[in-house]
Design a protein around this nucleic acid. Structure first.
Lengths: 219, 219
DNA sequence: GTCTATAGAAAGATAGAC
DNA sequence: GTCTATCTTTCTATAGAC
């Protein structure tokens, strides 16, 4: 059993190396432009060997996405245990959501956020049929959904935005092209980019409206 | 001269038909997944004929993008001439920006916003080298930039957001995947989707902070 | 300029030896 | 399981007749 476990461990390490390359290539070029030949050249193995581990290019991308989703779930767990900054006011639910957005942007700026085509493609069908991927995606959505509802119940998110919209927006900001444009501009540090985009995402582009009581609340 | 003009007109019509198909296919599948065979099948011409009009697939996409950019420029001109709604308060610069965002979202929901890969691709280099495309893009950026600066000077946009960021964000919202997700959900009408996303984009996800003097900054 | 037919290249996937 | 070598398909682009 020890020998088998060792062998499995070696395989696991190799698969991790493969997925690391896939992850980086997906972040750099996207699924359609990433070729299996590039992957195997990057890992340093033969193409046939890769196909012993993953049965198709779609499966490869799905595995990379699962890895990212699991990292995101781990980050959520981390944020739950360490809720607030040591100094400053107590962490609110909306701060947790901002921390998640901050993390996704950091991952993207580090070139480690695989970007899948939002459009119709062979990949979409493969992902929807991929049980593990869908499971992790649902779990992440559920956990974020709870935070969103908590934040909304606490009056920290706009009550007129459906929770759905907040969730989708958080996912979308994880692969927002604005990050890449600002980074290409070279005018801001990664930290500045993240703080600017957090402000524009949660605070909005426009100047906040006058105080709520001047707005004559409808509810 | 009349005959030549007529012939040219026929060609123009055909090229317009081609670009309309390209536009729709780009919106539906994106550049990488769109094939020239699909385009010619959709238009009803032979592939070789298409290559008499456009020298490459990249040129085809660039022409479609130019068409969209020119429509956007026309929309800006229209908004300039007809600045405000007949009823209600006077139109402000930020209202113009919101009207532009609304227009781009309408185009996207109508399936007429070609989406190009933000990533590295053969298309990027072709577009950067495409003089007409770059010209229209610069013109649109300049015109929007003026509105952004006017809105910021009037205190209607967050002063701590660089104008650059506002511009990029407007471009990015034109191909925001959130629109497609909400439309796929089927729970909201196109108009509702647009108003919700305008609110989240300009107003932000979070509840507006209390008036600045009541904020008692922590720092 | 439009067509049919095809060249040429790239990429996903596999056969078979070791 | 890993390799080399190859198959098969798909797609961009073009040749050549009309």
């Amino acid at each position: 059993m020890a020998r088998v476990s060792f062998r499995e461990q070696v395989l696991q390490v190799r698969e991790d190396a493969i997925l690391a390359s896939v992850n980086r290539l997906l972040a750099d070029k996207g699924f359609d432009l990433m070729t299996v030949d590039e992957v195997v050249a990057d890992v340093g193995i033969a193409k046939a060997s890769l196909y012993k581990h993953f049965t198709s290019k779609e499966e490869l991308a799905a595995a990379a996405m699962v890895r990212v989703l699991e990292r995101a779930l781990a980050e959520l767990a981390r944020l739950r245990e360490q809720p607030g900054p040591p100094t400053g006011p107590q962490a609110r639910p909306v701060d947790q959501l901002m921390a998640v957005a901050r993390w996704t942007m950091q991952v993207q700026l580090a070139g480690q956020m695989p970007s899948l085509p939002a459009q119709n493609s062979s990949l979409r069908a493969a992902l929807i049929a991929h049980k593990v991927y869908m499971d992790r995606l649902m779990q992440l959505s559920d956990e974020l959904g709870e935070w969103i509802e908590a934040a909304q119940a606490a009056g920290q998110l706009r009550p007129d935005l459906p929770p759905e919209v907040v969730l989708y927006t958080l996912f979308a900001r994880a692969c927002d092209p604005v990050l890449g444009l600002l980074k290409a501009g070279g005018q801001y540090s990664d930290e500045e980019i993240i703080e600017i985009l957090l402000l524009s995402c949660f605070g909005g582009l426009a100047t906040p409206e006058p105080a709520p009581e001047a707005k004559r609340k409808v509810g």
